[in-house]
Computed example of a mutant assay.
Amino acid sequence: MPQKAIDEEKRTVRGTIFDIQRFTVHDGPGIRTAVFMKGCPLRCPWCQNPESVRKTPQMTYFPMQCVGCGSCVKVCQQKAIRSTGKNLVEKINLTLCNHCGECAVSCCSRALQLIGQSVSVEEVSDTVMKDSLFYQNSGGGVTFTGGEPTYQPEFLTEMVKHFKKQGLHLVIETCGMFPWDSVAEALSLIDIFYLDIKHVNDEKHQRVTGQSNAIILENARRID
Rank of each mutant, 00 (worst) to 15 (best):
P2D: 13
K4T: 11
K4E: 12
E8L: 12
R14S: 14
T16R: 04
I17P: 08
Q21S: 13
F23K: 07
F23E: 13
H26M: 00
H26Y: 06
G28S: 05
R32T: 07
T33Y: 15
T33P: 08
M37C: 08
C44Q: 06
C47F: 08
Q48C: 05
E51L: 05
V53I: 07
K55H: 11
C66W: 14
V67R: 15
G68S: 13
G70P: 03
V73A: 11
K74R: 15
Q77S: 08
I81Q: 02
I81A: 05
G85A: 05
V89L: 08
I92R: 08
C97G: 04
C100R: 07
E102A: 06
C103D: 06
C107H: 08
S109A: 15
I115S: 01
S118A: 09
S118H: 09
S120M: 07
V121H: 04
E122P: 04
V124H: 06
S125G: 14
V128Y: 06
V128W: 01
Y135K: 02
Q136D: 03
V142L: 08
V142Y: 01
F144K: 06
P149K: 06
T150D: 00
Q152S: 15
F155D: 12
E158K: 06
V160A: 06
K165T: 02
C175T: 11
G176E: 03
D181E: 14
V183H: 00
S188V: 10
D191K: 13
I192R: 13
F193E: 00
Y194R: 07
L195I: 07
K198P: 00
H199I: 08
V200S: 14
E203F: 15
K204N: 03
V208F: 15
G210W: 15
N213E: 11
R221A: 11
